[in-house]
């Protein structure tokens, strides 16, 4: 037991002596003031350099962002028909705006769902539709209180007939209706492959077709 105690004491003393010796050894290693100055200079330079780089990065990232926004705007303008500033010529009925989700009538919700599922039937541009529209065009125009809705569709030419196929990546619109006379221009619609607004009344009945000039493909 005594031996153990004396060993512990000598270990502790050795430990302290070692620390004293290490402190002595440390103090003999002279602090290199020149090195410290060199380090301070290089540290200052590095910090300044970093700040400069950050500024450059900020500047270049803002420029890149501005370019990206510009390209995006130009691309959208080129690829999609301009719905926000409608041309009076083809929006003959009235102004239209995107139909908000909360105000969508049931038939639009159903139609959108079917379009999304590729189950929406193509509308045949046949004589029957022409006759129906001729009757309805006068009717709905005379009821200005009723809202009108629309979806964009593409006119697809077939051998003997043309049909309308609803575009998938387009919105549904609502017309701010005015009392204006409107008649579907069948000649214009069937003349070439193009996009048209398929106009519905509140019950989902097609009441008019409005060509969208200079557009042939659905929005991507």
């Amino acid at each position: 037991m005594n031996n153990l105690n004396s060993k512990n004491n000598s270990d502790t003393e050795f430990e302290y002596a070692l620390r004293r010796m290490q402190a002595k050894a440390d103090s003999q290693i002279e602090a290199d003031r020149h090195l410290e100055k060199v380090i301070l200079d290089s540290v200052k330079n590095k910090v300044a350099e970093n700040k400069q780089t950050h500024r450059m990065i900020n500047w270049t990232s803002w420029t890149a962002l501005a370019c990206a926004v510009f390209i995006a705007v130009v691309s959208v303008k080129l690829m999609q028909p301009d719905f926000t500033t409608p041309d009076e010529h083809y929006i003959a009925l009235s102004e239209l705006s995107i139909l908000p989700e909360s105000k969508k009538p049931e038939f639009i919700v159903r139609l959108e769902h079917e379009i999304a599922q590729n189950k929406a039937l193509a509308v045949s541009l046949n004589q029957e539709l022409r006759d129906e529209l001729n009757l309805l065009e006068q009717t709905y125009i005379e009821q200005p209180a009723q809202p009108l809705y629309s979806r964009i569709a593409q006119v697809i030419k077939e051998k003997d007939n043309n049909k309308l196929v609803y575009c998938q990546n387009s919105q549904s619109f609502v017309y701010r209706r005015q009392s204006k006379t409107y008649k579907t221009n069948w000649q214009q619609i069937t003349r070439q492959v193009q996009l048209v607004q398929v106009v519905f009344d509140q019950n989902g009945q097609i009441v008019a077709l409005e060509p969208i000039p200079n557009t042939v493909t659905c929005p991507v």
Binding site: A25, D26, I29, A31, D32, L35, E36, I39, L40, V43, K44, V47, A48, N50, K51
Partner: peptide, 24 residues
């Protein structure tokens, strides 16, 4: 802050001991 004065203070405080450790 990226203010170099804080680094300078750290260099002053630790450089000598660090150098002694590395020399050994």
């Amino acid at each position: 802050s990226e203010d170099a004065k804080w680094l300078e203070a750290l260099v002053h405080q630790h450089q000598t001991a660090l150098y002694r450790f590395l020399v050994q």
